[in-house]
Structure formats: structure tokens, C-alpha cells
Write a protein that binds this DNA or RNA. Structure first.
Lengths: 107, 107
DNA sequence: CATCCATGCTACGTTTTTGATAGCGCTGAT
DNA sequence: ATCAGCGCTATCAAAAACGTAGCATGGATG
């Protein structure tokens, strides 16, 4: 395990990782995935869950996330995570844990 | 474990998580952390590692990451991850793995 | 049928963020 | 003294995101 991490440190940033990082760098992208963890949400419910996202950006993101196979649209149910999206959720759960530790640390 | 994930799904998005997601949503933010996994990098080396980031944005991000205690500046060595930054790297390692599986899946 | 309401989504003008490029001031080596 | 590399700033252009209004559809209700 320690060895594997060392290899990760040495290896150049892969194309796949670069695009995952590019995805993460678009505003609201991960937040949308995170909000969908509860189950399918309608467009408007998703908008409300994110708080202040504008519908144009939400629409933009949903297209991108659908193109990547992270989110899918279900008629009459709205949007929900695919299997890949679910796996991404687990990554975000790790981020969630990290964020909790970070803010605890800042006090 | 399964139970803990269910709780995560039910719980509302915390303030800490919202700001972590906001951080992720700024372009290059996570990429910078990822590139610093190899060890300390100078401003220009970091710029080169990211590929095409402009110096003004890099400067902006570094300030933000320093304010959050994720990155620190070491005289004559450049920038490196703090302990929190290292823990964030481990989260990104999970993202790395996810990205590899995702692209494998798309073929 | 007519009305109402919620939905997914688009249009559009403004603001914010990011980008590209040039270059300044400093430091250390030659 | 020169020179190269460094961290970083300035400036302007381009792109992304925002806020708001509103359209079209479809189902429920009177």
C-alpha cells in the first residue's frame, strides 16, 4: 500500500486524471453529484439543493455529467447517479470526511 | 459501514463539505494539490506541471490553498503540501483510481 | 373544456473568473 | 557586471457563471 502510493507520486498525471480534475474544476460539478446521493432529484429540486446555482449552469453541468455517464435522466423522476456516479459519490464521501477534519483543525 | 453511508446520504450537506466542494469547483485547485504530491515545487515548476495555467490564477489559487492550510511556502524550496494537503492527496488518489475505471468503462 | 400549477429548460444582459502575454524586481552564480 | 532563473504583478481579452424572466409542456382540478 505504501509502495503503491509512492508509485502514484512518481507517475505523471494521466489523461484520465487530468480530465477528472478538469471536471472537478467546473463550478457545481461535484456538488451536483453530492446532492444526488440521496436518490433521484428533479431539475428544480436539484437546483434548490445546490442553493444558488443558476438554471443555465445546472443544465450545462447535467449535460456534461450525462456525457460522462455519471448522471442519467429518468423520465418523471428527474436525474440520478449511474453506477459510475455512485462510485464517484464514494470518493466524495472521502472528501466529506477530509473537510470535517480540516475545519475541526482550523479551530 | 453500509449504515454509515446511509447516514451520509440522509444528512444535509455540511458547511465544511460545501466549502470543500466550492474549493474543488475552482479551476486548477485540485490539480495544483495533485501536482504537489511529488514534493515541493517552485512557482514556475508548478506552473509547468499544470501545463497551461496562467501565473495570475496560480498565484490566486496558492493564496487560497495557503489560507486553508493545505499548502505552505518554504523559502528556497517553493510550495509543498501540509499535513492536511497530504490527506487531501489521498482523497485525490481515490479520484485517480475512479478516473481510471471510468475511462476503461467508456471503451 | 378551461384553469391552474409545477416542471424542464432557454434567453439575455451583467458580473466574475480565467486566460495570455509582457515584464518588473530580486537573488545567486559565473 | 552580466546573466539566468525566480516569484510575482499588470493589463487586457475571452470565457464562464450569474440573475432574472419567461416559454412550452403535461398533468391535475374545477
Amino acid at each position: 500500500m505504501a509502495q503503491r502510493v509512492q508509485n502514484l507520486r512518481r507517475a505523471p498525471t494521466s489523461v484520465a486524471m487530468a480530465s477528472a480534475l478538469a471536471l472537478s474544476g467546473r463550478r457545481w460539478a461535484f456538488r451536483i453529484v453530492w446532492e444526488l446521493r440521496v436518490g433521484p432529484l428533479s431539475f428544480r429540486a436539484l437546483q434548490a439543493a445546490c442553493g444558488t446555482i443558476s438554471p443555465s449552469v445546472l443544465q450545462h453541468r447535467l449535460h456534461g455529467l450525462r456525457d460522462l455517464g455519471i448522471v442519467e435522466r429518468i423520465p418523471r423522476l428527474g436525474y440520478r447517479l449511474t453506477a459510475s456516479g455512485e462510485r464517484l459519490f464514494h470518493v466524495l464521501a472521502a472528501l466529506n470526511k477530509w473537510s470535517a477534519e480540516l475545519t475541526k483543525e482550523l479551530h
